[in-house]
Protein backbone atom coordinates (compact mmCIF):
# COMPACT_ATOMS: atom_id res chain seq x y z
CA UNK A 1 0.00 0.00 0.00
CA UNK A 2 2.71 2.36 1.04
CA UNK A 3 4.82 1.32 -1.93
CA UNK A 4 2.01 1.89 -4.38
CA UNK A 5 1.50 5.32 -2.97
CA UNK A 6 5.16 6.13 -3.58
CA UNK A 7 5.08 4.77 -7.11
CA UNK A 8 2.05 6.83 -7.86
CA UNK A 9 3.82 9.92 -6.69
CA UNK A 10 6.94 9.16 -8.64
CA UNK A 11 4.91 8.85 -11.83
CA UNK A 12 3.12 12.10 -11.20
CA UNK A 13 6.45 13.83 -10.94
CA UNK A 14 7.15 13.66 -14.65
CA UNK A 15 4.81 16.45 -15.74
CA UNK A 16 4.89 19.61 -17.84
CA UNK A 17 6.54 22.68 -16.38
CA UNK A 18 3.97 25.13 -15.00
CA UNK A 19 6.09 27.71 -13.23
CA UNK A 20 9.61 28.54 -14.13
CA UNK A 21 11.56 30.99 -11.95
CA UNK A 22 14.86 32.37 -13.20
CA UNK A 23 17.40 34.23 -11.06
CA UNK A 24 14.83 35.62 -8.66
CA UNK A 25 16.17 38.04 -6.06
CA UNK A 26 14.06 39.72 -3.37
CA UNK A 27 15.16 42.62 -1.23
CA UNK A 28 13.34 43.97 1.81
CA UNK A 29 14.94 47.38 2.09
CA UNK A 30 18.61 46.47 2.55
CA UNK A 31 17.97 42.84 3.42
CA UNK A 32 18.66 40.40 0.63
CA UNK A 33 15.90 37.90 1.38
CA UNK A 34 16.05 35.67 -1.72
CA UNK A 35 19.34 35.12 -3.51
CA UNK A 36 19.29 34.19 -7.14
CA UNK A 37 16.75 31.38 -6.99
CA UNK A 38 15.91 29.44 -10.13
CA UNK A 39 13.39 26.63 -10.00
CA UNK A 40 10.99 24.80 -12.30
CA UNK A 41 7.69 23.71 -10.83
CA UNK A 42 5.70 21.00 -12.57
CA UNK A 43 1.99 20.99 -13.29
CA UNK A 44 -0.33 18.65 -11.35
CA UNK A 45 2.30 18.15 -8.71
CA UNK A 46 2.68 19.11 -5.08
CA UNK A 47 5.94 20.96 -4.58
CA UNK A 48 7.07 21.59 -1.03
CA UNK A 49 9.38 24.38 0.11
CA UNK A 50 11.12 23.48 3.34
CA UNK A 51 13.76 25.20 5.41
CA UNK A 52 14.38 26.86 8.73
CA UNK A 53 12.47 29.98 9.80
CA UNK A 54 13.42 33.14 7.93
CA UNK A 55 15.05 31.24 5.06
CA UNK A 56 12.86 32.99 2.48
CA UNK A 57 10.55 30.18 1.44
CA UNK A 58 7.38 32.19 2.15
CA UNK A 59 8.89 35.23 0.47
CA UNK A 60 9.58 33.21 -2.64
CA UNK A 61 6.06 31.80 -2.58
CA UNK A 62 4.66 35.32 -2.41
CA UNK A 63 6.61 36.22 -5.56
CA UNK A 64 4.56 33.72 -7.54
CA UNK A 65 1.32 35.70 -7.11
CA UNK A 66 3.09 39.02 -6.63
CA UNK A 67 1.79 39.49 -3.10
CA UNK A 68 5.14 41.13 -2.37
CA UNK A 69 3.84 44.08 -4.41
CA UNK A 70 1.68 45.00 -1.44
CA UNK A 71 4.75 45.50 0.74
CA UNK A 72 6.20 48.95 0.07
CA UNK A 73 9.83 48.13 0.78
CA UNK A 74 9.94 44.83 -1.12
CA UNK A 75 11.78 44.74 -4.44
CA UNK A 76 11.83 41.73 -6.76
CA UNK A 77 14.19 41.11 -9.67
CA UNK A 78 14.45 38.18 -12.09
CA UNK A 79 11.75 36.44 -14.07
CA UNK A 80 8.95 34.12 -13.11
CA UNK A 81 7.16 32.45 -16.01
CA UNK A 82 3.78 30.82 -15.70
CA UNK A 83 2.89 28.90 -18.86
CA UNK A 84 5.73 30.76 -20.55
CA UNK A 85 4.41 34.23 -19.66
CA UNK A 86 6.57 36.45 -17.52
CA UNK A 87 4.42 37.56 -14.57
CA UNK A 88 6.98 40.13 -13.44
CA UNK A 89 6.33 42.06 -16.63
CA UNK A 90 4.88 45.49 -15.83
CA UNK A 91 2.02 44.80 -18.25
CA UNK A 92 0.76 42.01 -15.99
CA UNK A 93 -2.00 43.16 -13.66
CA UNK A 94 -1.47 41.46 -10.31
CA UNK A 95 -5.22 41.32 -9.80
CA UNK A 96 -5.63 39.20 -12.93
CA UNK A 97 -2.64 37.10 -11.95
CA UNK A 98 -4.07 36.34 -8.52
CA UNK A 99 -7.25 35.02 -10.07
CA UNK A 100 -5.05 32.46 -11.83
CA UNK A 101 -2.76 31.80 -8.86
CA UNK A 102 -4.79 31.21 -5.70
CA UNK A 103 -3.34 31.45 -2.24
CA UNK A 104 -4.05 29.92 1.15
CA UNK A 105 -2.51 31.56 4.18
CA UNK A 106 -0.88 30.38 7.35
CA UNK A 107 -3.68 31.46 9.65
CA UNK A 108 -7.20 30.63 8.47
CA UNK A 109 -8.61 34.00 7.44
CA UNK A 110 -12.23 33.65 6.36
CA UNK A 111 -14.08 36.91 5.77
CA UNK A 112 -16.45 37.79 8.59
CA UNK A 113 -19.33 36.89 6.30
CA UNK A 114 -21.41 33.80 5.72
CA UNK A 115 -19.81 30.58 4.51
CA UNK A 116 -21.62 31.01 1.20
CA UNK A 117 -20.44 34.60 0.73
CA UNK A 118 -16.89 33.61 1.56
CA UNK A 119 -16.78 31.17 -1.33
CA UNK A 120 -18.98 33.21 -3.67
CA UNK A 121 -16.90 36.38 -3.32
CA UNK A 122 -14.12 35.36 -5.74
CA UNK A 123 -16.43 34.14 -8.53
CA UNK A 124 -18.55 37.26 -8.09
CA UNK A 125 -15.73 39.77 -8.53
CA UNK A 126 -14.27 37.80 -11.44
CA UNK A 127 -17.65 37.49 -13.12
CA UNK A 128 -17.59 33.67 -13.25
CA UNK A 129 -21.30 33.29 -12.58
CA UNK A 130 -24.04 34.53 -14.88
CA UNK A 131 -26.82 34.11 -12.35
CA UNK A 132 -27.71 32.88 -8.89
CA UNK A 133 -28.06 29.23 -9.96
CA UNK A 134 -24.59 29.34 -11.52
CA UNK A 135 -23.16 30.83 -8.38
CA UNK A 136 -24.84 28.22 -6.19
CA UNK A 137 -23.29 25.52 -8.35
CA UNK A 138 -19.84 27.07 -8.20
CA UNK A 139 -20.05 27.41 -4.43
CA UNK A 140 -21.19 23.84 -3.98
CA UNK A 141 -18.47 22.50 -6.30
CA UNK A 142 -15.78 24.50 -4.51
CA UNK A 143 -16.97 23.38 -1.09
CA UNK A 144 -17.08 19.76 -2.27
CA UNK A 145 -13.55 19.99 -3.66
CA UNK A 146 -12.53 21.66 -0.41
CA UNK A 147 -13.84 18.54 1.36
CA UNK A 148 -16.05 20.59 3.63
CA UNK A 149 -19.40 20.43 1.85
CA UNK A 150 -20.90 17.73 4.07
CA UNK A 151 -20.04 19.67 7.20
CA UNK A 152 -21.44 23.02 6.12
CA UNK A 153 -24.19 22.27 3.56
CA UNK A 154 -26.90 22.87 6.19
CA UNK A 155 -25.51 26.12 7.45
CA UNK A 156 -24.23 27.95 4.38
CA UNK A 157 -25.56 31.23 5.67
CA UNK A 158 -23.91 31.10 9.05
CA UNK A 159 -20.71 33.08 9.54
CA UNK A 160 -17.53 31.44 8.31
CA UNK A 161 -15.74 32.65 11.40
CA UNK A 162 -17.92 30.36 13.53
CA UNK A 163 -16.28 27.20 12.12
CA UNK A 164 -13.46 25.33 13.83
CA UNK A 165 -9.86 26.10 12.83
CA UNK A 166 -9.53 23.11 10.49
CA UNK A 167 -12.91 23.80 8.90
CA UNK A 168 -11.97 27.46 8.47
CA UNK A 169 -8.78 26.46 6.67
CA UNK A 170 -10.65 24.10 4.36
CA UNK A 171 -13.16 26.89 3.75
CA UNK A 172 -10.25 29.14 2.77
CA UNK A 173 -9.00 26.45 0.39
CA UNK A 174 -12.52 26.16 -1.07
CA UNK A 175 -12.59 29.94 -1.41
CA UNK A 176 -9.27 29.84 -3.25
CA UNK A 177 -10.38 27.12 -5.69
CA UNK A 178 -13.75 28.76 -6.33
CA UNK A 179 -12.05 31.24 -8.68
CA UNK A 180 -10.75 28.30 -10.79
CA UNK A 181 -7.04 29.02 -10.37
CA UNK A 182 -4.36 27.01 -12.15
CA UNK A 183 -1.82 27.22 -9.37
CA UNK A 184 -2.51 26.99 -5.66
CA UNK A 185 -0.01 28.49 -3.24
CA UNK A 186 -0.17 27.41 0.37
CA UNK A 187 1.81 29.20 3.03
CA UNK A 188 2.13 26.80 5.98
CA UNK A 189 -1.57 25.94 5.73
CA UNK A 190 -1.49 23.54 8.68
CA UNK A 191 0.66 25.38 11.18
CA UNK A 192 -2.37 26.65 13.12
CA UNK A 193 -4.22 23.32 13.02
CA UNK A 194 -4.35 20.27 15.28
CA UNK A 195 -3.15 16.88 13.98
CA UNK A 196 -6.61 15.69 12.93
CA UNK A 197 -7.39 18.86 10.99
CA UNK A 198 -3.88 18.69 9.54
CA UNK A 199 -4.52 15.16 8.30
CA UNK A 200 -7.76 16.29 6.65
CA UNK A 201 -6.07 19.21 4.92
CA UNK A 202 -3.17 17.04 3.78
CA UNK A 203 -5.57 14.55 2.29
CA UNK A 204 -7.27 17.41 0.52
CA UNK A 205 -3.95 18.69 -0.85
CA UNK A 206 -3.25 15.27 -2.29
CA UNK A 207 -6.61 15.32 -4.06
CA UNK A 208 -6.12 18.83 -5.37
CA UNK A 209 -2.96 17.66 -7.14
CA UNK A 210 -5.10 16.10 -9.86
CA UNK A 211 -6.21 19.52 -11.06
CA UNK A 212 -3.70 22.05 -9.90
CA UNK A 213 -0.07 22.73 -9.51
CA UNK A 214 0.21 23.05 -5.73
CA UNK A 215 3.11 24.79 -4.05
CA UNK A 216 3.22 24.40 -0.29
CA UNK A 217 5.52 26.01 2.23
CA UNK A 218 5.89 23.99 5.39
CA UNK A 219 7.89 23.87 8.55
CA UNK A 220 7.19 20.23 9.03
CA UNK A 221 9.50 17.87 7.14
CA UNK A 222 7.12 15.01 7.81
CA UNK A 223 4.39 16.97 6.09
CA UNK A 224 6.60 17.66 3.10
CA UNK A 225 7.44 13.98 2.93
CA UNK A 226 3.77 13.01 3.19
CA UNK A 227 2.19 15.33 0.63
CA UNK A 228 4.79 16.42 -1.90
CA UNK A 229 6.36 14.89 -4.96
CA UNK A 230 9.07 17.52 -5.29
CA UNK A 231 10.85 19.33 -2.51
CA UNK A 232 13.03 22.42 -2.48
CA UNK A 233 15.21 23.16 0.52
CA UNK A 234 15.87 26.83 1.30
CA UNK A 235 18.55 28.09 3.62
CA UNK A 236 19.39 31.75 4.34
CA UNK A 237 17.80 32.95 1.11
CA UNK A 238 19.47 30.35 -1.09
CA UNK A 239 17.72 27.44 -2.66
CA UNK A 240 20.16 24.74 -1.62
CA UNK A 241 18.65 21.69 -3.20
CA UNK A 242 15.63 20.81 -5.32
CA UNK A 243 14.50 17.40 -6.46
CA UNK A 244 12.25 14.43 -5.96
CA UNK A 245 10.94 14.39 -2.41
CA UNK A 246 12.05 10.80 -1.88
CA UNK A 247 15.55 11.63 -2.96
CA UNK A 248 15.83 14.77 -0.83
CA UNK A 249 14.75 12.89 2.26
CA UNK A 250 16.68 9.72 1.72
CA UNK A 251 19.74 10.74 -0.18
CA UNK A 252 20.35 14.50 -0.14
CA UNK A 253 23.29 15.80 -2.13
CA UNK A 254 24.08 18.93 -0.15
CA UNK A 255 25.49 18.58 3.40
CA UNK A 256 23.23 21.46 4.57
CA UNK A 257 20.14 19.61 3.43
CA UNK A 258 21.28 16.53 5.21
CA UNK A 259 21.97 18.48 8.41
CA UNK A 260 18.52 20.04 8.30
CA UNK A 261 16.72 16.81 7.57
CA UNK A 262 18.57 14.97 10.29
CA UNK A 263 17.72 17.79 12.69
CA UNK A 264 21.17 19.29 13.17
CA UNK A 265 20.28 22.75 11.87
CA UNK A 266 16.99 24.58 11.71
Amino acid sequence: MEDMYHMDRAMAGSQDIKISARNVNVYYGDTHAIKDVSVEIADKTVTAFIGPSGCGKSTFLRCINRMNDTIDIARVTGNILIDGEDITDPRVDPVQLRAKVGMVFQKPNPFPKSIYDNVAYGPKIHGLARNKTDLDEIVERALRRGAIWNEVKDRLHEPGTGLSGGQQQRLCIARAIATEPEVLLMDEPCSALDPIATAQVEELIDELRQNYSVVIVTHSMQQAARVSQKTAFFHLGDMVEYGETDKIFTNPEDPRTESYISGRIG
Binding site: T70, V104, I125
Partner: peptide, 10 residues
Protein backbone atom coordinates in the same frame (compact mmCIF):
# COMPACT_ATOMS: atom_id res chain seq x y z
CA UNK B 1 -5.15 38.97 7.24
CA UNK B 2 -8.49 40.18 5.85
CA UNK B 3 -6.67 42.37 3.34
CA UNK B 4 -4.36 39.49 2.33
CA UNK B 5 -7.34 37.17 1.98
CA UNK B 6 -9.13 39.54 -0.37
CA UNK B 7 -6.02 40.39 -2.37
CA UNK B 8 -5.11 36.70 -2.51
CA UNK B 9 -8.27 35.77 -4.38
CA UNK B 10 -7.76 38.58 -6.85
Amino acid sequence: SIRSAALGIG
